[in-house]
Amino acid sequence: MFNPYSIKTDPSRCLRHRYNKSTCSRCLNACDQSAIKIDHGLSVDERSCTGCMLCAAVCPTEAITVERYNLNRTLGELLIADKPVLACSLKDGLMAHSSGPCLGFLSPEHLVSIPVLIDKTLQLNLSECSDCENTHISEFLKESIAEMEIEGVVLVDSVNELDYHDIQTGRRDFFRMLRREPFQAAHEFTSSLTGGGTRKSYSEKSLPMKRRLLNAAYRAGSVTSKKKLQKLYSHIAFHKDCNGCSACTAMCPTGALSKPNGKLYFNTFSCVGCELCEEFCPKQSIYIIPIKEHQTHALEVCVGDKNDQCER
């Protein structure tokens, strides 16, 4: 069976490409098969890759993504189901409302955000995973869920435990569905996601899809869910040696750091915590630090002049 979901790499986002002294090895560590090479540029050996997509899940900057996969559509499909089920499409006949690549692609951001956005508990159909060469991904998912204390996602290992109800949609229904409000809402959240593929240059700033998803969930979420989501954000600190050279703003792949009017700005929502600025800063004056619970306000845009360190 043809697997339409292959791994797509985008060197313009890879930390190793952006900064030749970067030590980032998140994808290397995630790959069981040693299919990823980064010594001479980011590449994936298709022969040994099993498509578990963990590399995509751990890459902070979307240098590795799942080709042909549209999260937008998944959201839409999950939205119209009462008890939504998501599965991979690699095994025939899996019961699901939406199917995509191997569920290893689900990063903590996905896992924490999707339930908030669809406002339902999401079931992941892992019933066939035990026979699959990518069986290790369920461990990964479990760990993420435990670590993030996620409540809206249920891992279903056996078909019997699955709470699945088929939805019949013909052509007419589909277009009617397109016009339905929940879909529109989800569509709005993520309409920008489809733009990801046309990036041309390294200097173009772009926010990974999973981060946009997280931000959308954060905006839509309740106070309690916000607290949970918050753990995935970072904050920044500057050492007094910072001379305001603003090289970090160029290095930052997402645009979290910027200097539009001579002042340095930091936007938590755009920071994916890749720490490339920290590695690169010629003065070694930047520190990426986890958000603390009492720092809720800091999640909004951190403007340079609130912090005189930023003002240079």
């Binding site: 069976m1 043809f2 339409p4 797509k8 080709e67 042909r68 996969y69 549209n70 559509r73 499409s89 199917s99 593929g197 046309t198």
Partner: peptide, 15 residues
């Protein structure tokens, strides 16, 4: 030379 629509569902197309 590859087809995108082989799977039973609509596959998401990139460019």
């Amino acid at each position: 030379l590859k087809v995108s629509a082989a799977a039973g569902a609509v596959a998401t197309l990139g460019i």
